[in-house]
Design a binder for these strands. Sequence first.
DNA 1: TCTGGGGTCCTAGGACCC
DNA 2: TCTGGGGTCCTAGGACCC
Length: 376
Amino acid sequence: MDPIVMHADVDAFYASVAQRDDPALRRRPVVVGGWVVMAASYEARAFGVRSGMPTAQARRLCPELVVAQTRFEAFVAAGREVMAILERFSDAVEPASMEEAFLDVTDAGAAAPALAARLRAAVREEAGLPLSVGLARTKVLAKMASREAKPDGLMVVEREREREFLHPLPVGRIWGVGKATAAKLEAHGLRTVGEVAELDEAALIAILGRAGGRYVHGIATLRDPRPVRRRRGRRSVGAQRALGRGPRPRAEVEAALAALAERVTTRMRRKGHVGRTVVLRLRFGDYTRATRSQTLALPTAEAQRVTAALRELLDAAAPLIARRGLTLVGVTVTNLSPDAGQLPLFGPEPPAAVASGGEGASGGGGGGAGRGPPEP
DNA sequence: TCTGGGGTCCTAGGACCC
DNA sequence: TCTGGGGTCCTAGGACCC
């Protein structure tokens, strides 16, 4: 029997939460964000407003735009509320972000569309949020179906309609294919998914590399055997801060890094994580980026140790900074593992953090199965 | 359209080991 | 003797997603 995968995704998540919590915002063009739009309601999208756009530009496109405050705790709480509802509809729920998840609903069989309708109603009534749902045989198809279903809709891609649904789409609509990959495909004259499906895997690997080639080939030929799996542990924790233009004294940069290290390690300690690799992220005046990283002998969640590593990394990057001008610094701690000091000796189940089997301490190269190619 | 902040995964080269 | 082959880890960068 074919699996049935559901992809459930709250529409315009941040903006919908804002509209839910403030009735005066309903049916009005709303964005959430600061100086850049983080989410736009569908009313705002009708004016051409998109996330990532500077708020000033959004205002020019839509003079009656309402800019709602970013209430991060409210978003986190709303996300949890939605996930709790989803958990009632399947044992296998794989969150993909705060506001979307894959559900294995194979057991529902022919009743899956009715289940999806009930789920949408539950999220609407209990969480007060619009949910779009895609139903299909694979994750990618379900994901792409929910996208087509938006806003506030349900789309079912039946097995015998998969080709008809997928093949006419431009390659850039494949989940996981962005601008760079689409450009490579188009440079070979491949514009639609159907055209890609005519190539064999080796040809696609030659164009996109091993993982990308396999992935795109699998999707185009309707193979995507990745199962819905429960959430894996977090892989990294990070924070960053824009510094504005103009030269910054070293002391100011160091102070910013110390504050970021504090923020990151506090979050790690709260979750019982330690990490071994410290990554310094930099962005320059010309919007180019660079990273410098250092792997410690022992994992840590101490701000001081992270800050010390950051200082060394900053020294290593000094010539680059002098040349290009620093505009943003970020700190990421990766190579996470559960803090052994915090492990219960006889817990009900083992900690889930680094659970991905034989991957070991997945340094920088990492084989994961998140979005990667379909497994053989 | 001049560009937020938080993540995940893949690639490639070099070091090092057996 | 025109020079192994496989594996792991680290570093840096790129692509993509929400």
